[in-house]
Amino acid sequence: MKDTKPWLKPALELGPVLVFFLVFILRRGETTVIAGQEYSAFILATLVFIPALALTTAIQWRLTGRLAPMQVATLVLVIVFGGLSVWLNDPRFFKIKPTMIYLLFAAILGYSLIARRNWLQAVLSEALPMDAQGWRKLTFRMVMLFLALAAANEIVWRTMSETSWVYFKTFGLPVILFVFLMANAGLYRAHATEPSADDKGE
């Protein structure tokens, strides 16, 4: 893996989301005509978000030489559901995209628990060294988190305004994920392992 600045990865991941938010807020209540078709601010923001995410994902792959499976899955679902929203001029498809992503992640991690394969450990072990029991506990908690996030997304977009959903997607979900990671600090400490001799020699 190529060395990159520590701030670059989160900047690339958050960049498209902030672009979506700014386009929506700046054009909220207005319509944009493209090729004779009127689009709301939400659809316009979605139209901008799709290539922005594709670009930042390509940059990450170019800089690091690899992409996490979840990044690839997210990009595919964004293209599919975002594309449907733009093509059909219907924001509902893009709003259910987070639900599909979180259910997919929950299913993948849930299967890894049943199959007794620590896929989460394979992805994050370098940054977070823990024993096998710690990874099983964290995986189970993340399955529960993703199921709760899927349910929360459905409740918000179906019962609240479009603006409320945009704020929830842009700021609420990242805050929830951050709080979840911080709340598991005790788990990280209790199951922490020492770096291997090979790691120490690198």
Rank of each mutant, 00 (worst) to 15 (best):
1 M>C: 09
1 M>T: 12
9 K>T: 08
11 A>H: 03
11 A>E: 03
15 G>W: 08
16 P>F: 12
16 P>T: 12
17 V>C: 06
17 V>F: 12
18 L>S: 03
20 F>D: 02
22 L>W: 11
23 V>G: 09
24 F>E: 07
25 I>R: 10
28 R>N: 13
32 T>H: 11
34 I>N: 12
37 Q>P: 08
37 Q>E: 13
39 Y>N: 09
40 S>M: 11
42 F>M: 13
42 F>Y: 15
42 F>N: 11
43 I>G: 13
44 L>I: 14
48 V>L: 09
48 V>T: 07
50 I>V: 14
54 A>K: 02
55 L>R: 01
60 Q>N: 12
61 W>V: 03
63 L>Q: 13
66 R>D: 07
69 P>E: 04
69 P>R: 05
73 A>T: 11
75 L>K: 00
76 V>Q: 02
77 L>W: 01
80 V>W: 02
80 V>T: 09
80 V>Q: 01
82 G>E: 09
89 N>E: 09
89 N>G: 07
90 D>Y: 03
91 P>M: 03
91 P>I: 08
92 R>D: 12
93 F>E: 07
93 F>W: 15
96 I>L: 14
98 P>R: 10
100 M>K: 06
100 M>V: 15
104 L>H: 07
104 L>N: 01
107 A>W: 04
107 A>E: 01
108 I>F: 10
110 G>N: 08
112 S>A: 06
113 L>T: 09
119 W>D: 05
120 L>C: 08
121 Q>S: 07
123 V>P: 00
128 L>P: 02
132 A>E: 15
133 Q>G: 01
135 W>L: 02
140 F>G: 14
140 F>K: 11
140 F>R: 14
143 V>T: 07
144 M>G: 05
145 L>P: 13
145 L>R: 08
147 L>R: 02
150 A>K: 03
152 A>N: 10
154 E>N: 10
161 S>F: 02
164 S>Y: 02
171 F>D: 02
174 P>S: 05
176 I>D: 05
176 I>W: 06
179 V>Y: 05
180 F>K: 00
181 L>P: 00
182 M>C: 02
184 N>V: 04
184 N>I: 02
186 G>P: 05
187 L>V: 00
190 A>E: 11
190 A>S: 14
192 A>L: 00
194 E>M: 05
195 P>S: 08
199 D>A: 12
200 K>S: 01
